[in-house]
Amino acid sequence: MRVSVKLFLFLNIFFLSSSQVYGYKILYAEQFFKLYHVHFNQYPEDVLENIFYLEKALRSDFCNPLNALARIENETEWERYRYLFRMHVNLKLVELYLRLASKYDKKEAYFFNYPWKYLNLESLDKAEKIYEYALVYWEEAKRESSKAIMLSWIHLEEIQYWEDENHRIETGELDYERIINSHLERLKRVMRKFQNMDQNTY
C-alpha cells in the first residue's frame, strides 16, 4: 500500500514537471497596461518596473476593439477610446516620474548635511532631470486630451474615470505643469543652499 502511494506521487510529480507550460506573448497596449500595479512600498525599482510597462504600452499597437478595456461599438468610439487610453497612460507616467523624483529630491538643505553636500547635489540633479522628464509626458497627456475632448459627446462607461481626467485637464483643474514647476523652483532653492555651504556654515 505504502509503495503504491509513493509510486503514484512520484509519477504525478514526474509527469507534472515534464509537461509543457504554455505562456502567451504580450503584444498589445492593453496587455502592458494591465501589468501596471501599485506596490505597497514604493521603492525606485518598483516605480521603474511600472514605468517600463506603461512606456511599452504607449509604443505598442492596440488590441482588437473586441478586447478593449471599454465596450466599443463604432469607429468614433474606438477613436475616442484610443485618445483617452494614451492620455491616461501618459498621466500615470507623470505620476510615476513624480514619485521617482521624490526619492532623490531633498525638501530642505540642513546645515548638518554639509558632509554629504556633493551627494545631495548629485541626488538633486537626478531629481531635476526626472521632474523635467515628467513634463514631457504631461505635454503628451495634454495633446491626447485635446483630441479626446473633441469627441466628448461619446460616453464610454467602463473608462469614465479617464473621461473625468480629460475634463479636468481641459478645464485646468488638473495641471501637472504647475505642480512640477513648483517642485523645480523649490529644488533650485535647495540646490543653491547646498552650493553655498562650506566649512564656515557647518
Rank of each mutant, 00 (worst) to 15 (best):
L100D: 11
N74Q: 11
D61S: 14
W138S: 05
R86V: 01
F112L: 02
L69M: 15
M150Q: 13
E108Y: 15
R80I: 04
K56P: 01
Y114N: 02
E55A: 04
D125G: 13
E108V: 15
L100Y: 10
E140V: 02
K142P: 01
I149K: 05
N113G: 01
L48R: 12
Y137G: 05
E128V: 03
Y104F: 15
N120K: 10
N50R: 01
W153T: 04
L54H: 03
Y53V: 01
K117L: 04
L84F: 10
Y53S: 00
L69S: 02
L84S: 02
E75W: 08
F62K: 08
L151E: 09
I149P: 01
F40A: 12
A134S: 14
Y43F: 08
M150D: 13
K142C: 07
E144N: 14
L58S: 02
L96P: 12
S102E: 15
L66Q: 12
P65T: 07
S152T: 06
A68S: 15
I130C: 03
Y83M: 01
V38F: 04
P65F: 04
H37Q: 14
L119R: 11
E55K: 09
Y137Q: 02
Y118K: 13
F33H: 09
Y133H: 08
S102T: 02
L54S: 09
L96R: 05
K56G: 08
L54F: 06
E108F: 15
E144T: 07
S145K: 03
D105W: 10
E128Q: 14
Y137K: 10
Y110N: 03
L35F: 10
S145P: 07
N90V: 10
L96F: 11
L54R: 04
F40M: 10
L84P: 09
A101F: 03
Y36N: 12
L58T: 08
K117D: 10
N50Y: 06
S123L: 08
K126P: 00
F112Y: 14
N67E: 15
E49R: 13
F40H: 09
D125C: 07
V136M: 12
Y137H: 11
M87D: 08
E122R: 13
Y118F: 15
I130D: 05
L135V: 03
Y53M: 01
W138M: 06
F111R: 11
V94G: 08
E73H: 01
I51N: 05
H39C: 04
A70G: 11
M150C: 05
L69E: 12
H88E: 09
I51C: 05
L124T: 10
D61L: 11
R80A: 03
Y131V: 03
Y97G: 00
V47M: 03
D61Y: 03
P44G: 09
K92D: 03
A127D: 07
L96G: 07
L93F: 10
L121P: 08
C63A: 15
Q42E: 10
Y97V: 05
I51M: 08
A134G: 05
I72S: 00
K106N: 14
N90W: 01
V38C: 00
D46K: 13
E108A: 11
A109S: 04
F40P: 00
Y53I: 02
V47N: 00
N90A: 04
E128D: 13
V136W: 14
F40Y: 14
P115C: 05
L100S: 03
K147V: 01
R143W: 06
A148P: 13
L124M: 10
E139R: 15
E144V: 04
Y36T: 04
C63I: 14
D61H: 06
A70F: 11
L58A: 05
L84C: 12
